[in-house]
Simulated scan of single mutants.
Amino acid sequence: MTASLRPTCPCGSGEPYDACCGRLHRGAAQAETAEELMRSRYAAFAVGDAAYLWRTWHPRTRPDDLELDTSRTWTGLRVLGSGEDWVQFVASYDSPAGPGEQSERSRFERRAGRWVYVDGETPGSD
């Protein structure tokens, strides 16, 4: 299913994709909060929009090249907590090895008036 035909947004808002994260992916709007950016980045992983992920990654920390793992199908997002410049979440996925989860506490910064992803820590790691 193409991103524009998705009935609801993968971020879990319950809103239509085009009215939610789709408008951010298209560049029709900018994320207003760190949490909105994180949700839109999760949705970008879900729909395979590597260009959006690259654009919303801080230039200091983003990789030179970004390839998405197409063997994973992202199946759900739970936001555990958030602050002005951080979001802690658990993202669920299915893969050939079976279902799994990715947990992260992500950090964000405003750069030239726009939110960007800086980096993230896996809970329990140093």
Score class of each variant (00 low, 15 high):
Pro10Asp: 00
Gln30Asn: 08
Val118Trp: 04
Thr56Met: 00
Arg39Val: 09
Ala91Tyr: 00
Arg62Thr: 10
Arg60Gly: 13
Ala50Ser: 02
Thr56Ser: 02
Arg105Glu: 05
Gly14Thr: 08
Ala3Lys: 05
Val87Ala: 12
Ser71Leu: 12
Gln88Met: 10
Ser71Glu: 08
Ser125Phe: 04
Ser13Pro: 03
Gly22Tyr: 01
Thr61Lys: 00
Cys21Glu: 08
Cys21Val: 03
Pro16Gln: 09
Asp64Pro: 11
Gly124Phe: 10
Ala50Lys: 02
Ser92Asn: 06
Ser40Lys: 08
Pro99Ser: 01
Trp54Cys: 06
Ala44Lys: 03
Val90Phe: 10
Ala43Pro: 07
Cys9His: 14
Tyr117Lys: 01
Glu15Ala: 13
Ala97Ser: 11
Glu67Ala: 12
Pro16Tyr: 03
Gly81Val: 15
Arg107Val: 13
Arg39Lys: 00
Arg78Cys: 06
Asp69Trp: 02
Glu104Trp: 10
Asp85Phe: 11
Trp54Asp: 11
Leu37Asp: 06
Glu104Gly: 00
Gln102Cys: 11
Leu5Ala: 13
Val79Leu: 11
Arg110Lys: 01
Arg114Leu: 13
Leu24Ser: 02
Tyr17Pro: 10
Arg78Tyr: 09
Trp74Val: 02
Gly98Pro: 15
Ala28Trp: 12
Tyr93Lys: 07
Gly98Leu: 15
Leu37Ile: 09
Asp18Ala: 14
Ser95Met: 06
Asp69Pro: 09
Gln88Asp: 07
Tyr52His: 06
Gly14Met: 07
Glu109Phe: 09
Gly27Pro: 10
Arg62Phe: 01
Arg62Lys: 13
Thr70Ala: 12
Arg107Ala: 11
Trp86Ile: 02
Phe45Asp: 03
Gly113Ile: 03
Thr73Gln: 06
Cys11Val: 00
Thr2Cys: 15
Ala29Leu: 14
Phe108Asp: 00
Phe45Gln: 03
Tyr17Asn: 04
Leu37Arg: 01
Asp65Arg: 06
Pro16Thr: 14
Arg105Ser: 13
Tyr42Glu: 00
Gly14Ser: 13
Glu32Thr: 15
Arg114Cys: 14
Asp119Met: 05
Gly12Met: 03
Phe89Thr: 04
Asp69Val: 08
Gly124Ile: 15
Arg107Leu: 13
Asp94Pro: 09
Gly22Leu: 13
Arg111Ala: 10
Trp57Met: 08
Val87Gly: 05
Ala91Pro: 00
Ser4Cys: 08
Glu35Asn: 13
Leu66Met: 08
Ala3Asp: 05
Tyr93Ser: 05
Val47Pro: 05
Tyr52Glu: 04
Arg23Trp: 08
Gly27Phe: 11
Ala29Thr: 12
Ala112Tyr: 12
Val87Leu: 04
Arg107Cys: 15
Leu66Asn: 11
Ala31Ser: 13
Arg111Asp: 14
Ser125Pro: 10
